[in-house]
């Protein structure tokens, strides 16, 4: 097996290649994603997770009209290069801007750190790691992900349009949650902090 080439991955991200647009056009100059349009953050995600998602878009187990053609145009080597490059970039760090405390943010914090066991929903961080920073190789980081994106993925599991999660773990979380809970936890995860004041 050929090794991943991080520099080739960086080139692909910044310039694209034949028939493949530059990833940064949508995923941001440093893989930080775009909050408003909901393009996901890729920087700092586990390499194995990123590679798996590219394969899933190309193979049809994960559906998205923008990513599917791009992933299908990548060869196996390019997928590995891109995954290696984005995994090497720094993950999300709190940037100091504070979030206005609100009941919705507090509900999101509760779901992320304690879950809702009356419906058998574990804390998000029980699987996604403390602070939602991810647990390599299988559990992606959630912290700093655009809320539009997080919400859309929760909905996708609930309606079984994303089905590539191992052991159906995410589906079993999402199917027990309400839309209001999706809103709250997505809002929280865009800028997570450990107290309810949003610091």
């Amino acid at each position: 097996m050929v090794h991943a080439d991080r520099l080739a991955g960086a080139a692909l991200a910044q310039k694209g290649s034949k028939g493949v647009p530059a990833c940064m056009a949508c995923h941001g100059a440093n893989g930080e994603g775009q909050t408003a349009s909901g393009f996901p953050r890729l920087a700092g995600q586990p390499e194995a997770y990123l590679l798996k998602q590219l394969q899933a878009f190309a193979g049809g187990q994960r559906k998205n009209s923008q990513m599917a053609p791009i992933a299908s145009a990548l060869d196996a080597q390019q997928m590995r290069d891109a995954a290696d490059y984005y995994a090497s970039l720094p993950g999300w760090r709190p940037q100091g801007q504070t979030r206005a405390p609100s009941p919705q943010y507090a509900l999101g914090l509760r779901l992320a750190t304690s879950g809702n066991w009356s419906k058998d929903v574990p804390a998000c961080f029980a699987c996604h790691g403390p602070g939602g920073a991810g647990v390599a190789p299988h559990f992606p980081a959630l912290a700093g992900q655009p809320s539009v994106y997080t919400r859309s993925q929760m909905k996708a599991w609930q309606t079984a349009t994303r089905t590539n999660d191992p052991q159906g773990l995410m589906q079993s979380v999402a199917e027990k949650m309400t839309d209001a809970e999706f809103d709250a936890v997505s809002l929280y995860l865009e800028h997570p902090s450990l107290d309810e004041k949003g610091k």
Binding site: D120, A126, S172
Partner: peptide, 11 residues
């Protein structure tokens, strides 16, 4: 314990 509680979230 395992039957009621594991895998996590899928007791």
């Amino acid at each position: 314990f395992i039957h009621a509680n594991m895998p996590l979230g899928k007791g």
